[in-house]
Design a protein around this nucleic acid. Structure first.
Length: 684
RNA sequence: GGCGAAGUAGCUCAGCUGGCUAGAGCACACGGUUCAUACCCGUGGUGUCGAGGGUUCAAGUCCCCCCUUCGCUACCA
């Protein structure tokens, strides 16, 4: 019988830096599903890879004085090394710099262009620079950017756009009729309510502001922006051809069964990607699962994102060095909730490893083998002397495979693992119920003792076999120690598959050593210090990252989280068009003194200040609540853009703008005169 | 502000269409056991099921309102 195909993908990791354990989690999770599906008899194709274009990478490479290609070769290699170390069994590691991918992306772009779904933007005067967005006349609100309310300007940068709205209704219909399409379901509402139902805007799909990307082959001033480039990997990787000459493999594996991605990029995968496919007349993937994030616990027990400057980034290889690869896999797979963010720390890991892996599992295998050796020279045979107590163990052992299958059907990997460990616990209990050491003292009970040990070895064998998708090395180690044969899922559904009379190893190896919490903590401190030092060194060296919004939004791939770690000492912005002195002279800047300030109740970010400028007082609303309290604002002398057209924000009138500097993390600092100045002094 | 999710044992969470004394894992305490990696087995919670109302013979489970947290989104003049 022909095996049924199963195609699973991860997001491709952005090659701006080394991925942390949260990013690695995605690859491991996908791997466990892929391995399980193989066990179920599917012909699995598991694809992962790297997203390697974009301005951010262009800049990073420039800082290191190497070509972008050399830069991404390095990082992609590093990522692949980590994936390999974690034993991810991918069938293909695609890179967006692969020539066949690049060629197909160009073809796809051209095809969409020829079809009229991509068009060259010609919206003169309607570009909002801060939002990096183009708008149609009808989209404007009071003639201003509907996003931010600012003036829109003539666009110097032409760009290509994707007609999203054309397919919106079809997509809404599809989502409504395929409840399994977006997982978890709570995310479906977010996509519907925030994007689809209010109406989709056309998407900008090319850039001229940087060069490191796939050129538009009929207009080489443009490079193809991340969406079409990165998302296409799912089809180019299995041989899609835009001209209809797709490889056989594509016909076999597409549509994908599962796109496994981080919850942060769900929007791109559940809206833009399906629409792209519709435009290409390609079927949609069956399911998209936006998994939660693995966060870091902080000192107070709360959860925070990882960042190098905090010294709290956890890397898979550091963790694997201390705990071992399977322990790390176990932790991320077992501890991550299905739809909530999970937390990880050195201590939490050590706790789980001690209680689950060392105590429950490791010790079970060890004590069982020891007894076999002690009582029967290592030979395990079923003497056929059963008692009633055996039924409990057998029922759990033979039923575990089905329970695991049930959980895996819903991608509840953590619960599936729990089922397997329930079996191991049952084995431990069985030892207490039967008390082999007591049987050993009774000459007449030798047969019974043999059967008891056989049952134990068989129970462990079944558990070990089922554990393979999650902890492949451990499965191998256990089976090797028991000299048990590999078995398929169906052979896990009946009790008694272990070959009677087999001799187990006489030198049981410790599977997972118990960890000393103090040592773990010391190691954690060391790693944190090394990281902080490294972060400081990089800052001193002036290793800058880009503050470019394009890279931020664009990538949205797994490695993104690592990006906010860097603290550049300089920031480069995309240059705006040159202006004349007359343009400048239109702006009136003055020193303003804040004489009163209060929070705007109905908003999260806004403060409303009364600003004294000369003899008049203006009311100005600013989005700086996260950076300044209302009290500390009072008394400050700040730089004010005075002649800005008044606007209403959150229902409050604002008659100007307080100027701030902003770093790449969005941190704000008010501009204040360096020497005392009277309120109203002109800034020119 | 809009949409959504969640608030259950010290911690992490299960509890579907309402129904017997509200559960699991971890941690902790005590008891048992000794084959084993000071391990395993057993026992132990008076938890106001966020607050307050309501429907019902019966509510953690349905309705209303409030509080808190979180996610997405808008507001960053």
């Amino acid at each position: 019988m022909e095996k049924k195909p199963y195609y699973i993908t991860t997001a491709i990791a952005y090659t701006s830096g080394k991925p942390h354990i949260g990013n690695t989690y995605e690859a491991v999770l996908a791997d466990s599903i892929a391995r399980y599906k193989r066990l179920e008899g599917y012909d699995v194709y598991f694809q992962t890879g790297t997203d390697e274009h974009g301005q951010k990478i262009e800049q990073k490479a420039a800082e290191q004085n190497i070509t972008p290609k050399a830069f991404v070769d390095g990082v992609a290699g590093e990522i692949r090394t980590i994936w390999d170390r974690m034993n991810t069994s991918y069938d293909k590691f695609i890179r967006t710099t692969d020539t066949d991918h690049e060629r197909q992306v160009q073809k796809i772009f051209k095809k969409l262009y020829d079809k009229g779904d991509i068009y060259k933007g010609s919206y003169e005067g309607l570009y909002c620079t801060p939002c990096e967005s183009f708008w149609t006349e009808s989209q404007l609100v009071d003639g201003k950017c509907p996003d931010c309310g600012r003036e829109v300007k003539p666009a110097k940068e032409e760009a290509y756009f994707f007609r999203m709205s054309k397919y919106a209704d079809r997509l809404i219909e599809h989502i409504n009729t395929h409840p399994e399409f977006i997982q978890p379901v709570s995310r479906k509402n977010e996509m519907m309510n925030n994007f689809l139902l209010p109406g989709l805007q056309d998407l900008c799909v090319s850039r001229t502001s940087f060069k490191w990307g796939i050129p538009v082959n009929f207009d080489d001033r443009h490079v193809i922006y991340v969406w079409i480039d990165a998302l296409s990997n799912y089809i180019t990787g299995i041989g899609y051809d835009a001209d209809g000459a797709s490889a056989e493999q594509f016909g076999k594996f597409w549509p994908a069964d599962l796109h496994l991605i981080g919850k942060d990029i769900l929007r791109f995968h559940t809206i833009y990607w399906p629409i792209m496919l519709m435009a290409l007349d390609v079927p949609l993937p069956k399911q998209i699962f936006g998994h939660p994030w693995l966060l870091r616990t902080d000192e107070s027990g709360g959860s925070v994102k990882m960042s190098k400057s905090r010294g709290n980034v956890l890397y898979a290889d550091d963790l694997a060095d201390l705990f071992g690869v399977d322990a790390v896999r176990y932790f991320v797979l077992h501890e991550m909730p299905f739809d909530n963010d999970g937390a990880v720390s050195w201590e939490l890991m050590a706790e789980r490893i001690n209680s689950d892996l060392a105590n429950t599992l490791g010790n079970l295998v060890n004590r069982t083998i020891s007894m076999s050796n002690k009582y029967f020279g290592g030979v395990v045979e079923d003497a056929g002397i059963s008692e009633e107590v055996d039924a409990g163990l057998k029922a759990v052992a033979a039923g575990t495979a089905d329970r695991v299958a049930e959980k895996m059907k819903e991608l509840r990997v953590a619960d599936a693992i729990t089922e397997i460990f329930t079996l191991f616990k049952r084995c431990n209990k069985y030892i207490d119920e039967t008390m082999p050491w007591a049987l050993a003292k009774d000459e007449a009970k030798q047969g019974r003792l043999k059967t008891v040990l056989y049952n134990l070895v068989e129970g462990i064998s079944i558990g070990a076999a089922l554990l393979e998708p999650f902890m492949p090395e451990t499965t191998e180690k256990i089976l090797a120690q028991l000299h048990a044969e590999k078995r398929g899922l169906s052979e896990c559904r009946s009790f008694g598959g272990y070959v009677s009379g087999t001799k187990v190893t006489d030198a049981p190896e410790i599977l997972f050593a118990r960890l000393d919490m103090k040592e773990v903590q010391e190691k954690a401190v060391k790693v944190a210090e090394a990281q902080k030092a490294e972060a400081a060194a990089e800052e001193a060296k002036g290793t800058a990252a880009s503050g470019d919004g394009a890279a931020k939004a664009g990538a949205g791939t797994a490695a993104d989280g690592a990006a906010d770690a860097d603290s550049p000492s300089v920031i480069d912005l995309a240059p705006k068009p040159e202006i004349t002195y007359d343009d400048f002279a239109k702006l009136q800047f003055q020193v303003g003194e804040i004489i009163a300030c209060e929070e705007v109740k109905k908003s999260k970010k806004l403060l409303c200040s009364q600003v004294k400028i000369g003899s008049q007082v203006k009311q100005i609303v600013s989005g700086i609540k996260a950076h300044y309290s209302a009290q500390e604002m009072v008394g400050k002398k700040v730089m004010v853009l005075v002649n800005l057209k008044p606007a209403t924000l959150a229902g409050v009138l604002s008659e100007g703008m307080l100027l701030c500097a902003e770093d790449e993390n969005g941190k704000l600092a008010l501009m204040t005169p360096e020497k005392p100045m009277p309120a109203g002094a002109e800034i020119c």
